[in-house]
Design a protein around this nucleic acid. Structure first.
Lengths: 255, 255
DNA sequence: TAGTGAAGATTGTCCGGACAAATGAACAGG
DNA sequence: CCTGTTCATTTGTCCGGACAATCTTCACTA
């Protein structure tokens, strides 16, 4: 620890190790010396070493395992931008106060076009819920949404639009199947004739189509939602905050 | 610590406190008993208390300040979905291999319509860079982009499209002004006559318009980008992973 | 040579102690 | 009543120690 060291010892140590990582002396995949060795080498307590390593770990630079040691997973902390979605309105991009109403339900076989959008095989059977998202008052409707659920989740239908909670939450509550990932595609299009009356808008006018795929921990498709919004009533908005996130680094197997 | 306690003591303590928070015995805004008091009350060391509090803090439930104590900031950990953007292609949603070419540069005064999109006052002066994002080969162009920079950042123009790095990175490198937040609005529209020739597409056909506002730590606007994409060549895609993020809770002032 | 068990090395949990830094409350003086 | 100082309280840093859990390596035996 030199006279020009930062405020705390564990910060100095973390920065020293970070320089080793960056400078290639501790390349990705390399094993970091153990806590006791670092403590001896830097003249600090093991507690201080652990604090420094903890910081580096939280930056995604290293991984630590009892019995195995500490491994460099990533060469540098990468500045990135992060969008966190905690409100249903943000996840589904609908205005507060709107409601979802199921108009029709039918079991369907998806053809090639839909299968491509879903990321599943053509010929699969899905339970289609044709829904309108609108307001209780006479404001123009928000969007048309087709939900495609697994037929085995048929029991969720009764709760859709009636019980509080998003569809993926209802599925999780009733089937224990948890959505781990949501993939969203937003495209421009023209309002289709089948939904323009319900949406009180003109067929062919600009529209925005949003496909959301809900996937479980293994990447298997839980359900899909296809929404069609009149273009003049919809903005897909998001805010990305600067944050720190590990980029693609070494994946350390095992527990 | 009962016989049915979880694996570790700090986990049990964290969960006990979490129950107090959830059950209203420690409401948002309430002060959590101090470390020494909790240690005495639960029969554990201060170290264990600190570990438990650290966990709750990382969940955004509490805030801790030397001299002041520990405050409940939020009533419950909220499951949420997080999108992390580390690659330029993901931030700007452009295909790899494309390039940005500056076509024209002019200082402009923004009127009310643009000012509304920017979130700034009408009458402000901005340096407009009219750019085409395309490919070196003869693939159809990606999009038209108007960049609006502060006139004081005029020196960045020479580097745009020529030096590696995104515009916000160039501004940061040359002016030390760091983008802390990016606000994105995606809307459907119709391709404007002014850019359809450059984009090799038909005026009036469906398009996607993306406004990106780059803000600094104080929320001041650094620059704005307006992109227009032919609808049939563009999908705004994002993937949200399940994560934990503090929702809107009490904001604890001061350092 | 292959399998098994023990020893050694590593990180994780938990205890205790001491001092530093920051804050707020109480008290004293003008 | 206001301001400044002091003291008590709180969290943060850092030290040391001991044991647990996990993993790897080595040695021995069949």
């Amino acid at each position: 620890m030199t006279a020009t060291s930062p405020r705390t010892r564990y910060q100095a140590l973390a920065e020293s190790l970070l320089e080793d990582i960056r400078g290639g002396r501790l390349p990705v995949g390399a094993r970091v010396p153990g806590e006791l060795e670092l403590a001896g080498r830097f003249g600090v307590s093991r507690h201080t070493v652990r604090e420094a390593l903890r910081r580096l770990e939280s930056l995604g630079l290293i991984g630590r395992r009892p019995g195995r040691g500490t491994l460099v997973l990533n060469g540098r902390p990468q500045a990135s931008y992060v969008q966190a979605v905690t409100q249903p309105e943000d996840l589904l991009q609908y205005p507060a106060g709107s409601r979802l109403r199921v108009r029709d339900t039918a079991e369907v076989t998806v053809g090639r076009t839909l299968a491509r959008q879903f990321g599943c095989r053509a010929g699969e059977r899905w339970l289609k819920l044709a829904c309108l998202r609108d307001f209780a008052d006479d404001q123009p409707p928000v969007c048309w949404t087709d939900l495609y659920l697994r037929p085995a989740h048929r029991d969720v239908v009764a709760a859709v639009g009636r019980r509080p909670g998003l569809v993926h939450e209802l599925i999780e509550a009733q089937h224990g199947l948890r959505t781990e990932r949501v993939e969203v595609d937003v495209r421009a299009g023209q309002l289709s004739a089948t939904v323009c009356t319900a949406l009180q808008a003109e067929a062919g006018s600009p529209s925005m189509n949003v496909v959301r795929r809900y996937l479980d921990a293994e990447g298997a498709l839980i359900f899909v939602s296809l929404s069609e919004h009149p273009g003049d009533r919809f903005t897909y908005s998001l805010t990305l905050e600067r944050g720190w996130q590990s980029g693609s680094g070494l994946v350390w197997g095992g527990k």
